[in-house]
Design a protein around this nucleic acid. Sequence first.
RNA 1: UGUCCGGUGGUGUAAUGGUAACACAUGGGUUUUUGGUACCUUUGUUGAGGGUUCGAGUCCUUCCCGGACAACCA
Length: 555
Amino acid sequence: MTEDKQSLNFIEEIIKEDLETGKHEKIVTRFPPHPNGYLHIGHAKAICVSFGLADKYKGITNLRFDDTNPVKESVEYIESIRKDVKWLGFDWENEFFASDYFDQLYKWAIKLIKERKAYVDDSSAEQIALEKGTPTKPGIESKFRNRSVEENLDLFERMKNGEFLDGERVLRAKIDMASPNMHFRDPLMYRIKNVTHHRTGDKWKIYPMYDWAHGQSDSIENVTHSLCSLEFEVHRPLYNWYIEQLNIYPSRQIEFARLNLNYTIMSKRKLISLVEEGHVSGWDDPRMPTISGLRRRGYTPASIRMFCDRVGLAKRNNVIDVALLEYCVREDLNKSAYRRMAVLDPVKLVITNYPERKTELLTGENNPENSEDGDREIPFSREIYVEREDFKEEPQNKKYFRLAPGKNVRLKHAYIVHCEGFKKDEVTGEVTEIHCTYYPDSKSGSDTSGVKAKGTLHWVDANSNAEIEVRQYDRLFKTEQPDVGEEHFTEHLNENSLTVIPAAKAEIALANADDKQGYQFLRLGYFSLDKDSTTDKKVFNGTVGLRDSWGKKNN
RNA sequence: UGUCCGGUGGUGUAAUGGUAACACAUGGGUUUUUGGUACCUUUGUUGAGGGUUCGAGUCCUUCCCGGACAACCA
């Protein structure tokens, strides 16, 4: 009974049909990053789409670096891209570079020149822009448009050989200056850049433009479905035009809506400026929407893949609620994170009827969702720390279950305590110590006391613990769409996006925390070990808080 | 006053001429030694008009709204 036909998205429909009709035996997709920045969550969607579809339909995916503009590219970016794609859990069939095809592209350009479909233009960038017209006004033809084939060939070769300065000449396709599609108004194919390329060195002084390189690269690789974002929709006729003129393998470009997330930005240019202007500590700042930032924040590959799967695939512009991303990481981490206790804002609690010099080792499971993860030991003694927030002198709310004079609470994995009183600093009004008695027969797992406690608190032993630094993050921007509107996007930055807690108390087991393991600090949220940790002091990044159905209603 | 692409709850995505559904978010509840998890549950949706049809979110048409396109970027 596999009657449940799961609905396919529009690209899956196309692929399915192409496979069924025999148009393709096997699909080939590609992920073509421009190595001029770090990958972000928007790229993650593109990666999941191209790699994911190839996986689903038993095809292959190439990783192709679109390195046609050496001015903006760097090896650092190439390496980060490889790392991020792998980390997300994908593997490419081939690794290519657009620069692998520079020779072929050059030959094809000569072919077009000979067929009078391309020409060298000596006009300045300004002149060309001027003659291009506007979307509503046709352009006019360049005075260099009708040079002889011989002159074009000669000039083009000399362009290649470096006889001219940057910007002095370009090669253009000869199409239609009056076309309603701006990209048909004699698009540039090559421009001169006297710079060293990270892979081809000084071999080339001319570099192909995106439109002239991309479709041909797809075609050379026999890419069947070239999936890209909506903004390239207007490029598709040109993509097809080049392929038709060259009479080469007809790759098909299909566009889908890119991912947008609220409370953040996705523009590479703007992300670069956040890094360069020091608004964040780097590309991998845990507040960044970059893959490396999310990784450092404690997001798992599975959670990001789940997210990309759930946002869907369509052609309409969208803004995804970041709450969905947070949901996905909680969903994943809940199953795998080790539970630990840490107190971020400690206040001392003294159990007055507990023996002074005694320490017990209690047992707590690493993960209640998976008993195979085993247990860890937790020291417990007369003095412990609890969260300042978990004590109230005079609770107002009838449903308050935590510590207050006269109330019982369960200490997780330990005993039920009864609050007898507290000390406070008369000057500041700050509670300095909470006094409790415990019920000796209420020990976790063997409770025979019959005492009831509605609330359960996390705590840390005062004698034996690890001091840790905790970095808590909030959204980087205060507004849902920081790059929409009049103001500069940096004006929407949330100045409270980072809170450092230099000396939190953690249970001793966290002294041996592992950066490959996610942690849940009980009742607080998920945390992961940061690379800034030293052997003396561990640093933890707050990945995401626990869902909190109490805090929201009660401020 | 151009061309192209879109418009379904708050946010996304489905419904492929036949009862508008799913997830997140939101509100309520059950269970609980995490106010977590799990489970149950509430609210709320086809941009507007006209047409075709027994029947329209879906097809046709007019309009409205949103986005993309005028880098020697990709």
